[in-house]
Computed example of a mutant assay.
Amino acid sequence: MYSALSSIVAFFSLLSIVTATAVIKRAPEIEERAGRTFIGYNGFNGTPRPPQASGGGELGAVFYVADAVDLAKLFAHGADPSKDFICLIHADSTEWARIPKAWVPQRILSQGGNAVNAFSPGTVVFAPHTNAGLPAGSPAHVYQLGVRQAQISRLQLTADCKPKATFAKDHSTLNYPSLDKAWNIQHPA
């Protein structure tokens, strides 16, 4: 009896350690891991594919990455929920440190995607995003970044995609403004 009980207790203890480890591994951190830097979340509905720029949008023709998993969840919504995905996006740490980054001034944002496309070529662009449609418990402010198509291969972007349901109770955020100094994000006039 004691042996069977000990085995059961040991099994559940091991299960809790494995579960805790899995959660820790899934939770992205801003640190280099094997030369990769976690830069945010991308949400979509469809078949997973390598990162590629969109046809357009608020930041122009860029690959969109969100600092908050809740914003990615908003974009991971389609007619077929089994195709709703959230991806953790990583970049080569050396190239991420080298590539210029800048906040898009409001005056440029208000002119639309074409103006943003022309703004600071070769730069990864950052901008606020509206909180409209985000669930309760979301961060007070959410932000996005845009990687232009030519930069995707330079940064060696990778996407670790999982079903949206995996993130059901996750409200993680990187809070891009808090990374201004660490990532050397410029604030042009």
Results as ranks from 00 to 15, higher is better:
Ile86Val: 10
Ala61Ile: 02
Ala159His: 01
Pro188Ser: 12
Ile89His: 06
Ile108Val: 15
Ala132Leu: 07
Asp80Met: 08
Ala22Asn: 11
Ala140Phe: 14
Asn42Ser: 13
Lys25Asp: 01
Asn42Val: 00
Val18Pro: 05
Ser172Ile: 00
Leu15Phe: 07
Thr123Cys: 04
Trp96Met: 03
Asp67Gly: 15
Val69Gly: 04
Ile152Arg: 08
Lys73Glu: 04
Lys25Tyr: 12
Arg107Trp: 04
Asn184Val: 10
Leu5Thr: 11
Ser6Pro: 00
Val23His: 12
Gly60Arg: 12
Asn184Thr: 09
Thr130Lys: 13
Gln52Leu: 12
Ser110Phe: 01
Gln151His: 12
Asn42Gln: 13
Pro51Ser: 15
Gln111Arg: 15
Phe167Leu: 05
Tyr64Ala: 11
Ser178Trp: 05
Thr47Gln: 03
Glu58Ile: 11
Cys161Glu: 05
Ala159Cys: 06
Tyr41Lys: 04
Ala136Pro: 08
Phe167Met: 09
Ala22Gln: 13
Phe63Thr: 01
Asn117Leu: 02
Glu31Pro: 05
Ile185His: 15
His90Glu: 14
Ala10Pro: 00
Lys83Leu: 13
Ser16Glu: 12
Ala72Lys: 03
Ala76Leu: 00
Phe11Asp: 09
Met1Phe: 08
Phe11Met: 04
Val23Lys: 06
Gln144Glu: 15
Ala22Arg: 14
Pro121Val: 13
Phe38Asn: 00
Leu59Asp: 09
Leu71Arg: 03
Gly78Phe: 03
Ile99Pro: 00
Val65Thr: 13
Ser178Leu: 05
Ala189Leu: 11
